[in-house]
Every structure is written in C-alpha cells, then in structure tokens.
C-alpha cells in the first residue's frame, strides 16, 4: 500500500511572529521556516506504518514555493521514500491545495492519505476535509490513534470531551491530532540519504488546476500584549479578583 503525506512549509513554531509595519501580512524576511508540526506527525505515522510493514511506500507532497523542497527533504530524512513538489509562488487557499492534492491522489492512487489537521500559520483546518469531498474518500479527522487492517482503517478521533472510534474503508483520508505520535529526530545518516531520494517538481498547470485566489488579506494584527501576572496572597483574594476584576465567575 502507498501512503501519501501532505506537508506544509510554515514559520517555525518557536519563532515569535511579527506583523509587517503596513499590516499587510506577517514579516517573513530572515524568519526561520519549518515543517508544520501536525504535518510532521503525519510523516511520522506514515513512516511507522512502513516500518510495521503495512505501507510499502511513503510519498510526501508539498505545494508552495521552490524552497518548500526543504520540508520535503526533511520528511525524506524522517523516512519518506520520495517527494513531489507542486511549485507555485501564488498565495494558496485550502480549496486550491485540496484540488491539487486530488490530482496527486489520482496519479499516485494511495491507500491512505495522511495530513496534519491544520497548519499553525493560517489555522484553516479544512484541507483534509475538502480533499475527502473532492476525492470521494472517507475521512477520519483529528486522529489520536490509527490501526490499519486489510481493507479498512480504525481511527480514534479526539472530539469534544472524549474519543470516538471509526472504521473507514480504504482508501481513506486521515488528519492528525497532536497526540497521535511523537515525531522522531532526523538522524544524520538518514539526512544524508534523503539527499539522494527522488523529488519530482510539478506545477499547478501540469495538473490543469487554476490556483488564483478569490480571497484577499485586508489586515493582519498582532494579538494584544499579555500583561504581567499578579501573585495573589490567598484563595479568597483570588476568588475576589476572579469575580470582580476578571468577571469570570
């Protein structure tokens, strides 16, 4: 079985994001970029499936600028077998990404597609779901555990206040939640091997997909500065403050 994993290039989660002075977006100059953490979990899960003998090939795909190759190489250093970059410098909406992924799915015919549940930059949480609709595949979102058997996959989902377990017919789509696994660190020998793994570069035009967005970002603002905490002297003082200052109880 082939497993297809989609990964996204985002600002490294340790970086404190700064808004450009004209508020048109986030300042990306000299900012460290990395693989979206949820995507990393997706890669890890796919690689584990391969190590268990469930998957025989892990293909990683990213859609974005040329430099997104770095994230594909990282995925290959973590154990993916080959990569596909759909190269475009256009700002992309989730729908355009889902359309492109649908085309990749048509070509690759994977038994399982694993994606992060959302990216930490745009927080859309919809690419997986859209892909499910477009590709006509069942989906198990927010997965915290998966078990693949012959023709189906059992997915434990994290839902409000509890867990839900589903069985999906293959091929299926899974989006990962935080607790699915703890991604490994890329080892140096694997990093070196990744350099030699195949990486195909395509364009949206190759797939006949129009990625021009109908959406325009009007304004980006920083969150309000968090003010310093206060140390309260007693429980009753805390309750008093929660009641009268914070007005939350």
């Amino acid at each position: 079985m082939k497993v297809l994993v989609a990964v996204k290039r985002v600002i490294d989660y340790n970086i404190k994001v700064r808004v450009k002075s004209d508020q048109s977006g986030v300042d990306l100059a000299n900012v460290k970029m990395a693989m979206n953490p949820f995507c990393e979990i997706a890669v890890e899960e796919a690689v584990r499936l391969k190590e268990k003998g469930v998957a025989d090939e892990v293909i990683v795909v990213s859609i974005g600028p040329k430099v997104a190759q770095e994230q594909i190489r990282t995925a290959m250093a973590l154990g993916a077998d080959r990569g596909i970059l759909v190269e475009t410098d256009e700002p992309l909406e989730s729908l355009a990404i889902a359309k492109l992924l649908t085309k990749v799915v048509e070509v690759e015919q994977p038994g399982l597609v694993i994606l992060g549940k959302q990216s930490i930059d745009a927080d859309n949480n919809q690419t997986g779901q859209m892909l499910g609709a477009l590709a006509g595949m069942s989906q198990g979102t927010f997965a915290s555990e998966i078990n693949v058997s012959e023709n189906s996959v059992e997915v434990t989902r994290e839902i409000d206040g509890g867990l839900q377990t589903l069985s999906l017919n293959l091929p299926a789509i899974i989006t990962t939640d935080l607790r699915l696994n703890e991604p490994r660190y890329a080892s140096l020998p694997n990093i070196m091997k990744a350099k030699r793994k195949p990486l195909d570069v395509k364009t949206p035009a190759d797939f006949g997909v129009n990625v021009i967005s109908g959406l325009k970002t009007l304004l980006v603002e920083s969150p309000q500065e968090r003010s310093a905490g206060v140390l309260v002297g007693s429980v009753s003082e805390l309750v008093e403050k929660l009641k009268n200052e914070a007005k939350v109880i």
């Binding site: 340790n14 990395a34 770095e70 190489r73 660190y185 890329a186 080892s187 140096l188 990093i191 350099k195």
Partner: peptide, 18 residues
C-alpha cells in the same frame, strides 16, 4: 547547507523537547 540545516533542526528539537 541542507544537511547542516536539518542537523541543526534535529538538535534544536532535541534540546527543545527532551
């Protein structure tokens, strides 16, 4: 280079997480 960058990422993550 790519290799150094990925090694740096791994090491940074190790320090950060573990």
């Amino acid at each position: 280079n790519d290799i150094q960058q990925m090694m740096q990422d791994s090491a940074a993550k190790f320090i950060q997480n573990d």
